[in-house]
Write a protein that binds this DNA or RNA. Sequence first.
DNA 1: TGCGGCGTAGACCGCCGGTCCATACCATCG
DNA 2: CGATGGTATGGACCGGCGGTCTACGCCGCA
Lengths: 226, 226
Amino acid sequence: MPRARFYNLAPRARSRLLRIATRQFAARGLEGASLNEILAEAGVSKGAYYYYFDDKDDLLATVLEDAADAMLARLAMPDTARLSREDFWPTVQRLVFGWAASVDLAGDLFRVAVQLTPTQRRSPRFAPVLAKAQSLYRRLVEAGRRLGCVRTDLPVDVLVRLLEANDAVLDGIFLAVHPTVTPWSLQRHTRLVFDTMRRLLAVEGPAPGRRAGNAAPRARSRRPRR
Amino acid sequence: MPRARFYNLAPRARSRLLRIATRQFAARGLEGASLNEILAEAGVSKGAYYYYFDDKDDLLATVLEDAADAMLARLAMPDTARLSREDFWPTVQRLVFGWAASVDLAGDLFRVAVQLTPTQRRSPRFAPVLAKAQSLYRRLVEAGRRLGCVRTDLPVDVLVRLLEANDAVLDGIFLAVHPTVTPWSLQRHTRLVFDTMRRLLAVEGPAPGRRAGNAAPRARSRRPRR
DNA sequence: TGCGGCGTAGACCGCCGGTCCATACCATCG
DNA sequence: CGATGGTATGGACCGGCGGTCTACGCCGCA
């Protein structure tokens, strides 16, 4: 949420600042990155910066929003309204495989977002931007619930955040292990991501048989659910 | 890892400093908390502090280690060598529920650890301390694999990191929603944590091929309540 | 030529984590 | 007794941080 003037700036200077900021924030985090350093490297003075932005956080929020927009622009979301129950999981799988193509854009987003503490991620400053990036997950989860394919014992928000966290772990490992992406490794990875999503979201846990509960200690006090 | 002298200090002063630091770090995070403020409140001078500690991170690491030790001292780890295949999941569940007993201690640990970025959590400074806290999980995963209860298609490290990430999310939500912990809310939470572990770790059911296809997974599925 | 507002530069502020040194304390020893 | 040397402490001081503020260049316009 920079001031509107920022978008009247010469596009070259604008994207240059955002690019440098992205790199610094991804490398050193919100607190670790030096605003002074970013501005010096981008050739922007303190006065100019605060003419366009509110504060340091504002730059990070702008970087995140920029990356989220670029990613969403590339991804196709199917019309969830026409999905049938049998189509749901195959559709999810197809989507996940399709997302793999935009890993180069999503990478920036993850690398920056992963440097935020959970508390910061929930702050009014960053929550709306991150919610935008999660909108795909959210819509998928909601569609899956409507079709009876996705569990309803947890709020959508919780499921989305679990998905996000697992993706961050798996993508991080993938990028660390496979510095050069091959079609084969990418397929393996997307397969794993999809499998993890399914494990977390499916109405039933993966292994059949007795579920949690028989060993529950002491009597369960029946109380309203918050 | 404070200098050894720290443990020669008067226990009163020592625990006072750690208590105040815990509160500040839990409330404002590693970067947000002011070391100057903590020291002023604890009545410890700069010189004295740096006589005992390396830097600011050192204090946080000490706080974490202190909490982790206190927690682990209370938790019993079952003898995984004697576990049978049928005992595995109930044992895991009992262990996770056993957390309930030490949540007053674990709460501090979570509230502080949750303020770290994933990157910081993996840094050489904090990783060993946090690994100590998650050593239970690692041993559990290894035991479960030996017994054929836990999937072997992913490395142990990946599984542990997935567990860690999911725990961070769930604990973060739990602490945000329940500022004061009640036995009931805690039981609900541990139940959720166990269920998530099971979903992530369990070996796949029979006929693992083409499981992406069927929307309603297998027989004995519980109906979605809704 | 003078004027007013947009945009800019960078000196400056208070606070931060961290360093440094003078000194107080106290047991040991000639 | 005084001298010595390690332990422990106080707090002035440092560079760098995010953020503020003021002076000024620039340009369209009368």
